[in-house]
Design a protein around this nucleic acid. Structure first.
Lengths: 329, 329
DNA sequence: GTGAAAGCGCTAACAC
DNA sequence: GTGTTAGCGCTTTCAC
């Protein structure tokens, strides 16, 4: 690969001038042209590694997510990528697999590679960001908080839990269970709180402690919890799934038991992009994952650009898509 | 961040020795210990940018895929990441969105960042890899060929098309349609060829030209093609979906028309990880996407390690999971 | 507006 | 086994 020196020589200017041309700084018309011609001739493109070393910052953003196979996070990634790309940044997608050790490794790499910033969907409750923040690298939290005073974009989780539950209660269901996700994860807790509030208000006689189940945020977690719920002496007549994959698992089990929604009412917090279900059978509380990515990327780019205002948290509204089918009574 | 010089000073050795310790080269026991202690003290971690500049190679692999939201590709990514991570490499996931321009940009970045190698699921028929290959960077093609003489990992696409179709014919279906995907994409063509062969042998009277539809490799593509097929004067009694998303779209439309499989037979080339369908209703020709990623990453690491043998192409076998439910006659 | 030159942090010759 | 040193390709003062 050609270097700036070769381009300079061919164009009859100094290396500094070549650099200026490629960074849009003040260079005379004619020299600019000469440099561009020479560069094209030599198929020169600036060595980003050298640039990063010198500038102490690379044009790369790290996006750390706990599950690359969950469409929710790939949709988020999609949003981040779209914005980042337009601003000239590339995105390194780091899959922490919900393990804090893997996450820590990636965060360390982000520092060691002088990445411009990090968008983090934390693997667990308390991720240690001391090192990262100490370097001054901007970090934006998405989906989940971090306990640090940094920018964040989150869903209206409590409202989502409330909306999902209310929808089922309005439809006439009386024993509404909730499969929450991991007990230690903030989003799961908050969504469960929304459910709990509606239950307390509208169905005070229901045994909430039995109707609340924790699980993983995976299809299998949803399956297991749903099986347990169906095995209860008095099973629920409806269920709220705490995220998309739990929803998939729960619906799978219901289908296997011949209880396809809306025979048993189902509301899912999240979207089911690849489901083959009739869209009217299930209530969806859609979470704008792509928008979350877009917003987070914008916040991060502002910080990278030197924005210095106090930390902001953006809460994204969700959109309820009610099931229109009613159960046969 | 501390540098190698500060560590050297604190440990009472030269910078070169510090470097050697961190690269596992021959250093005496005691100095090694001194360096490690000093490094820990200063929370030193080597600056990867500087290392990359000096070595002319970074510990980053680019994975370029056409659709980050397709579970097939995230599963592939998962496989790549698992292998890469263990070998100390990070993976930059680049979403080309099936656009050759975006793809070209990412490939250029891969060069400019001195990435160690590229795993490419080509966006379209003929991607230009001249520059990339000229730099000597190893490239492994996945899922689709590139027209270059490089390592590759592909699915047994023709066999997948054959298996899917035979399964439906064996089940008694007589008008088996095929929704192929984009006409210009190799995998779509090959799978269609498999279908065509079975049709010619087993159902020679069927109007194959009407029963073959091209579409995008997206849910919407599957939907549109399925609608068209159902609108035919003599609609098919079964359909093979050329990839997972087409399958989702087709099944959605069928469900909406009250033709849930197996009333109309469905075979999908690919897996449906997030579907809520009963597993017995649809024949799946599973494509080992994760395994493809693992294999590609291993091949790439071998090349990065200096392996110089002629280009290899690995063809991955698929696994048929037949529908067990039969249609009511 | 332009050039000369230092230096980002590391590695790899080379000398001892 | 270990230290000295040059240099990877770029950006950025500092002069002019």
């Amino acid at each position: 690969m050609a270097t700036i020196y070769e381009v300079a020589k061919l164009a009859g200017v100094s290396p500094a001038t070549v650099s200026r041309v490629f960074n849009g700084l003040g260079v005379s018309e004619e020299k600019t042209q000469a440099v561009r011609d020479a560069a094209r001739h030599l198929r020169f493109s600036p060595n980003r590694t050298a640039r990063s070393l010198r500038r102490q910052e690379s044009e790369v953003i790290a996006l750390v997510i706990p599950d690359i196979e969950n469409p929710y996070f790939t949709e988020l990634a999609r949003g981040v990528e779209d914005v980042a790309q337009k601003a000239g940044y590339s995105v390194v997608l780091c899959n922490s697999d919900a393990q804090i050790e893997k996450e820590a490794r990636y965060l360390q790499i982000a520092v060691a590679e002088h990445m411009a910033g990090v968008i983090l969907a934390a693997a667990a409750d308390h991720t240690n960001l001391d090192d990262l923040i100490a370097t001054g690298r901007p970090v934006v939290a998405v989906d989940r908080g971090t306990g640090y005073d940094i920018d964040g974009v989150v869903m209206a989780n409590r409202a989502a839990g409330t909306a999902a539950t209310e929808n089922l209660v309005d439809a006439g269901y009386r024993r509404v269970a909730f499969i929450a996700g991991p007990e230690l994860i903030e989003t799961a807790q908050e969504r469960a709180q929304g459910w709990r509030r509606v239950m307390a208000e509208r169905l005070p006689e229901a045994p909430v402690d039995e109707l609340l189940r924790y699980s993983s945020f995976q299809v299998d977690g949803g399956r297991e919890a749903m099986e347990q719920l169906l095995a209860m002496p008095e099973p629920p007549d409806a269920v709220v799934a705490g995220n998309n994959l739990i929803g998939v698992g729960a619906i799978q089990v219901l289908t296997e038991h011949g209880l396809t929604p809306p025979r048993l009412g189902v509301a899912v917090i999240g979207s089911l992009p690849f489901t083959t279900l009739s869209p009217s059978a299930v209530t969806l509380v859609r979470l704008p994952a792509r928008h979350m990515g877009v917003t987070a990327a914008k916040l991060l780019l502002e910080r990278i650009g030197g924005d210095d205002q106090p930390a902001r948290t953006v809460v994204l509204r969700n959109e309820v898509q009610p099931a229109t089918a009613v159960r046969a009574v």
